[in-house]
Design a protein around this nucleic acid. Structure first.
Lengths: 298, 298
DNA sequence: ATCAGCGCTTAAGTAGCACTTATGCTTACG
DNA sequence: CGTAAGCATAAGTGCTACTTAAGCGCTGAT
């Protein structure tokens, strides 16, 4: 690669003016410095870039070729710097956000819509997926913000580079259809009765079912009959309504059905298991105005 | 504009490796220098470019944007330098040549065809036109070579930045159709007889007719009846054959017609006026291998 | 739990090189 | 023919980018 990029800046200016003296004035350096810089560049490239004529430097074809490389760069650079400047002046630019599929599809798009109504100059790139996939992308700088359903300090202090704050909690209930509830459970919610039932679970990562049992009964129940695993709350919900078995869903999603009757939840008397949606950020990363504005609306 | 382009080179390397230490090894400087350079760039832009994490520098979105500007530049630069290198290794690249319309259409294309048969890697950009138009373009660096029908040293030593060498001479004759010759001239070639005739001349620049008269009779004949001016030898030739009057054409173009009879030339006994096609180059401009090769074939 | 290892930062000193000043040359212009 | 403007070169200097060195934080191995 070229040893000194600054010579290209001098070259660029000379080319624009076809004159070393004019370039010197533009760059606030002496004419001699410009001349020396050009000479060094030519020696370095072993290529003549300008023909010295009286009061004028006439570019060779090589200079023309080089200019066609440098020129768009300088223009792009100036545009980019102006953009950076603008981004600091107020909420604009792109916000790259990661979120779990369900949260992203339901809550996040509403937040985005509301936010964009107030700040139309802010654009969003939302990536939906499992935290196990999205967290490395946050760590790699591909995301600015990440919503994830990890407990704050879930794995102790093993994620010191991240700053985590809870933004939303939702109750998780073990639910089934009314028909399933009356024919298979008949009101019996002891572990022994539940253990014989059909279950629906999520495919990725730690089992939601397992969490539920350990929360309510203090221990795992291995060997449950999991008749369906699918990484979609909506799918689990439909399966529940279809009477396939028992599955974990956020309570607010089945509030109406619980009241009206078609869906029943298993109640143990203990407080419900809660899922915390946390907002994760790279610790040490300065927040842009757009980011700040977005964060303050929580 | 940015004060120091070299910092961008360092930034580029850091971004590629997501590491200052790796960049330092790549650039053959100390890791501390890399860190300082990055720090200065960030302070200069007043924008955080990397989040410092353990053994890793994680780029911010601003860094990503900057990289997208710098990366194509570096790639383009490397490609361009390789191209420059290749051009010096042998005949390849583009040759930008200017020529008068007639010479360019007839002789030059043949030369180009023959040359390209031996050096297919050489491309040509031929500009046809009057020297008054093409000479400034040569002086401005837009042309590498210029064929022009100026006499070497035509305006004294008033064009020192150009190197001129004659490559071709052609006799210019004052000709007309056989019919015109017999009815209007009847063999009388004294100036007085000629002065009453109809003439055809070229539109641009110095009159070819005037040159002819001054060459053969030592003085100008103002007030000639010029019934047609057109900047095309072919057009003048057709006008001559059509009996419109007397016009100047290169002798070799009408050789057959002169022998066979349909066209007659006015002979004064003096040697014919000659037109020199010269090859003009910018003095002080180094010739590329392609250019050298082209020039040596004369 | 402790320590060795690696990477980034900061501070201070140095050395290299880019820049300035000065001079001479060339050409255009009045 | 003299003046003015532009470029090249030489020599000296000052800036600054770089090196060296020390310190800190984090990780992974013992």
């Amino acid at each position: 690669m070229l040893t000194d990029f600054n010579r290209l800046k001098v070259f660029y200016t000379i080319y624009r003016y076809k004159s070393a003296a004019a370039a010197a004035r533009e760059l606030y350096i002496s004419q001699s410095a410009v001349s020396q810089s050009l000479g060094k560049l030519e020696r370095e490239l072993k290529t003549q870039l300008f023909v010295r004529m009286h009061k004028k430097l006439v570019p060779t074809s090589a200079a023309g070729r080089l200019y066609e490389i440098v020129e768009p760069f300088v223009r792009g650079l100036e545009g980019g710097l102006a953009w950076l400047e603008a981004e600091k002046s107020g909420p604009r630019g792109v916000l790259r956000i990661g979120a779990p599929v369900e949260f992203g599809s339901r809550n996040l798009v509403e937040l985005v819509a509301a936010f964009r109504r107030r700040h139309p100059a802010v654009f969003f790139e939302v990536s939906l997926g499992h935290p196990d996939i999205l967290l490395p992308r946050l760590a790699g700088g591909e995301l600015d913000l990440l919503f994830a359903d990890i407990f704050p300090g879930r794995r102790g202090r093993n994620l010191p580079p991240f700053s985590v704050s809870t933004v939303l909690t939702e109750k998780l209930v073990l639910a089934c259809s009314a028909g399933y509830y009356s024919t298979r459970l008949r009101g019996a919610v002891e572990p022994s009765a539940l253990a014989g039932c059909e279950f629906l679970d999520y495919s990725h990562g730690r089992s939601a079912l397992d969490n539920w049992f350990r929360h309510h009964y203090g221990r795992s129940f291995p060997g449950l009959k999991v008749v369906l695993t699918v990484e979609s709350v909506q799918a689990i919900l439909n399966a529940i309504k279809g009477g396939l078995g028992l599955g974990i869903v956020p309570e607010y999603l089945v509030e109406k059905e619980l009241k009206a009757g078609p869906v029943r939840a298993v109640r143990t008397g203990r407080p419900e298991l809660v899922n915390r949606i946390s907002l994760v950020r790279l610790k040490g990363k300065a927040a842009s105005p757009a980011e700040k504005e977005f964060l303050e609306n929580f």
